[in-house]
Design a protein around this nucleic acid. Sequence first.
DNA 1: CGGAATCCTAAGAGATACTG
DNA 2: CAGTATCTCTTAGGATTCCG
Lengths: 133, 133
Amino acid sequence: METLRGVFDGPGDAFDPDCPTRAVLDRIGDKWTVLVVVALADGPMRFSALRARVGGVAPKVLTQTLRALERDGLLTREVFAQVPPKVVYEPTPLGRSLEAPLEAVRHWAEHNIADVAANRAAYDERALAAAQA
Amino acid sequence: METLRGVFDGPGDAFDPDCPTRAVLDRIGDKWTVLVVVALADGPMRFSALRARVGGVAPKVLTQTLRALERDGLLTREVFAQVPPKVVYEPTPLGRSLEAPLEAVRHWAEHNIADVAANRAAYDERALAAAQA
DNA sequence: CGGAATCCTAAGAGATACTG
DNA sequence: CAGTATCTCTTAGGATTCCG
């Protein structure tokens, strides 16, 4: 993990390779970030609840994702000193502001998966036919 | 590259690990997909134009990204048989429908990079102080 | 319960060089 | 111009096991 160079105090340009905006894009590009952020939109959640909601995450990976999001100030991590342990994750205002864009992405994915799947199948079939010729 | 299993004909559930929606999320999670799709929002572009617009992409990687997007039916690739060669990439209607969500993500990234950077710095400083104690 | 520690590998990604 | 061909290498991601 590298730090963002210097203080950046204005809207960035994602097309510029030297713009730290790329770091944010990379985080969003993370395999689990979208799902975690969207899951937390419903309210604070415990580790196990998140793990159950986000199907298929290994605990290690979930921890990594949560730590990264905490570092970026998108969520807070609150530990309750009790037995058994209890840790609650809650989105910050900054994190909440990201929910809408990511929800939009998720909805797009869920509603266009059929088209994408069909396109893929057609493309692969064409490629196969071309290879046989 | 794996094919999406079977035909999926309804809105998916991104939280389900067995839902092909995950494949779409993975594609969006690709480092360059967002930038390429957003770049093409302005209209059809040639390979070199894309390469210039999306700063920092290696030609190989750009090709990979474009092929993947073509396979998913998000853009079309048109080759002009002439010398020198000319290849134009153009978004499909499906691709265009993805522009809005991804633009929203890019805008969020560009406008909140300052906050994120500050949070990161603060987090790292705290971690450093804790390590020294 | 909520991780931390360890190990592993698949592949995303980049650099470089070359070509139809 | 628009790629392809290699090679290398980092690291995200996952499986497993153990700990406070």
